[in-house]
C-alpha cells in the first residue's frame, strides 16, 4: 500500500483526496482472512475445546472467526475437530465437497492428524489428510484453545500469501486447477481398502 504526492486517505474534507496503490491480491486477502467463517465439524473431544475457544475466555471473535456455520455452503474453513471414523469420514468428505471454493481445512487434534490414541483401531481413519487436502495441522490431544487460535492465525498467514494469478504457485483455487485433482497420499489406498471392509466407500 503506498501514497502518492504525500496525500493520504485520511486527508480532511475539501483538500485534495489521497490515492492509495496496492495489489488487488492484498485487498482481497485482507477481506478474506479477517472474516473466516468456520464450519462446525465437532466430532469428539476436540469439539469441546473448539467450543471453549469460541466462548467468553478465549473469544475467537477477536480474529473475526466467531461465525460458526452449521451449513457447509456458508463456510470458508472446516475445522475437523475429533476422531474421524470410517463411517463419519464418508460424511466429512461429502460435506467438504459441498463447501464453496476457496476452502480450507484445519485438522485439529492428534486423532484427525494421524489417528492419535485410536490409531490401532479397526474403525478409525488414520488422519483426515488421507481423504482431504489439509492446510493446517494443530497438534495436541486435545489442543488447548490457544493452539486452535494459533492454527487459525497460521491459516491467515497462508491466505495472505495467496494470489489470483493463475500461473503462480500460490493460486487461490489451487485445489481446482483445470484438469488437475489434488493427488491423495500413497497411504490413502490402505485407508480406502480398510474402509471398504467396513462397508464404507471413501474413494
Amino acid at each position: 500500500m503506498g501514497l502518492i504526492d504525500g496525500h493520504n486517505l485520511d486527508a480532511p474534507a475539501g483538500s485534495m483526496p489521497g490515492l492509495a496503490l496496492t495489489s488487488i491480491d492484498w485487498v482481497i486477502n485482507v477481506a478474506r482472512r479477517n472474516s473466516l467463517w468456520p464450519l462446525t465439524m465437532g466430532l469428539a473431544c476436540c469439539a469441546i475445546e473448539m467450543i471453549c475457544a469460541s466462548a467468553a475466555r478465549y473469544d475467537i471473535s477477536r480474529f473475526g472467526m466467531e461465525v460458526f456455520r452449521p451449513s457447509p455452503r456458508q463456510a470458508d474453513v472446516m475445522i475437523v475437530a475429533g476422531t474421524v471414523t470410517y463411517k463419519m469420514a464418508a460424511r466429512v468428505k461429502r460435506i467438504y465437497e459441498q463447501m464453496p471454493e476457496p476452502k480450507y481445512v484445519i485438522s485439529m487434534g492428534s486423532c484427525s492428524n494421524s489417528g492419535g490414541i485410536h490409531a490401532d483401531s479397526y474403525s478409525v481413519l488414520r488422519g483426515i489428510d488421507k481423504i482431504l487436502p489439509v492446510d493446517v495441522y494443530v497438534p495436541g490431544c486435545p489442543p488447548r484453545p490457544e493452539a486452535l487460535l494459533h492454527g487459525l492465525m497460521t491459516l491467515q498467514k497462508k491466505i495472505d500469501r495467496q494470489t489470483l494469478r493463475r500461473n503462480k504457485p500460490n493460486y487461490i483455487f489451487e485445489n481446482r486447477r483445470e484438469g488437475e485433482i489434488t493427488p491423495l497420499p500413497p497411504e490413502a489406498a490402505v485407508e480406502i481398502e480398510a474402509a471398504r471392509l467396513m462397508g464404507i466407500d471413501l474413494s
Partner: peptide, 22 residues
C-alpha cells in the same frame, strides 16, 4: 457398524482388518 460388515470385532479370532499397514 454397517450392515455389510462381515466380521465381529470383539471375537478373539478377529485380530485386525486384513489390510497391509493396519
Amino acid at each position: 457398524l454397517e450392515e455389510t460388515v462381515s466380521f465381529f470385532p470383539l471375537r478373539k479370532s478377529f485380530r485386525t482388518l486384513p489390510v497391509e499397514n493396519v
